[in-house]
């Protein structure tokens, strides 16, 4: 019977921690997002009022406010587009890399894999900062462009949306390569030979054999890049300019600058519903499904 006690201890210690420090905070975001905002501290009214009998004091105005104002919707759309473009470029660069690493011989493969992932271990903030140095007006990239005669005067490379995309693709690339490699590694190289023997040319082999088999890896890698990029705050703040506003920046300013807690909470909660929930539900269903099929 000691087992049972032990199991309970193992299951419930983290359970308790995560309910208290993860689930309840999410619930509080929801609570504040449906509260009526007012001037004061805290800047919202209680959702339960007891002065003249019991009254529930909630509103969806914060959501209406966000979803009807172009400032907010536009920023969210900007973030989605940014995430889409960055994910695409990560895939474009990551796929051939992952593919060639996976098809190398085993010793080289492990070395290459470590080499690809190790930069990911160095500080995120500093890797973004490195691009700030590279893209300066008198930075190394401009020096090269000038010396090659491609431009006659330094280009403004920093503080625009392209610099942001550059920084994101650079910092998130390993997150794309790892899952891709994971799937490509499993697959039987003989299939490529077989398809060549059967007369398919390179392009056809790629589209009919390699690509369909790597779909799960592409999906996993894309999600790992796409979702955090939508909420990304640091990179646009360091490398971006005023040409585009993004979701992360808007949320930050709504909270810290405008002190509109209900508005910021509504933004955050919308983000959870639109971005995170579909994926989490999918994951839970998938893990249940695969467990069932195993037994």
């Amino acid at each position: 019977m000691k087992n049972k006690l032990f199991e309970k201890y193992f299951v419930f210690s983290p359970y308790f921690w995560l309910v208290l420090f993860f689930f309840i905070p999410l619930a509080i975001i929801f609570k504040i997002s449906i509260s009526v905002s007012e001037w004061g501290m805290p800047p919202y009214q209680d959702i339960f009022l007891f002065d003249n009998g019991f009254k529930i004091n909630t509103t969806f105005e914060n959501y209406v406010y966000i979803f009807t104002d172009y400032y907010y919707i536009g920023s969210f759309v900007n973030s989605l587009i940014l995430a889409l473009i960055s994910t695409f470029f990560c895939l474009l660069i990551g796929f051939p890399l992952a593919f060639y690493i996976a098809t190398s011989n085993i010793r080289l493969r492990n070395i290459l894999l470590v080499l690809v992932v190790v930069p990911f271990w160095s500080s995120f903030l500093l890797r973004v900062y490195a691009w700030k140095i590279i893209l300066q007006n008198n930075g190394i990239l401009n020096v090269i462009l000038l010396n090659l005669g491609i431009t006659s005067e330094p280009l403004q490379l920093l503080y625009n949306q392209y610099a942001v995309i550059m920084g994101i693709v650079y910092t998130y690339l390993p997150l794309m390569i790892l899952p891709l490699y994971g799937y490509l590694n499993k697959f039987d190289l003989n299939l490529i030979e077989a398809s060549k023997d059967l007369g398919l040319n390179r392009i056809k082999t790629f589209f009919k054999v390699i690509l369909p088999l790597s779909v799960p890896g592409i999906v996993a890698g894309s999600l790992l890049v796409f979702i955090p990029v939508v909420g990304e705050f640091i990179i646009p703040e360091m490398l971006g300019g005023s040409d585009r506003l993004y979701y992360g920046k808007i949320l930050w300013e709504e909270f810290f600058v405008n002190r509109n807690w209900p508005g910021a909470s509504a933004l955050a909660f919308s983000g959870i519903i639109i971005l995170v929930l579909p994926i989490v539900i999918f994951q839970i269903l998938y893990s249940r499904w695969s467990q069932k099929n195993e037994i």
Binding site: P14, F22, I24, I29, L223, A268
Partner: peptide, 21 residues
């Protein structure tokens, strides 16, 4: 749900929820 969502939740949302909590 509790043990996997923090992996995909944008840090900004997590930070805001912790502060308000």
């Amino acid at each position: 749900f509790l043990s996997s969502t923090p992996l995909v939740l944008p840090e900004l949302i997590l930070g805001l929820s912790m502060l308000l909590f």
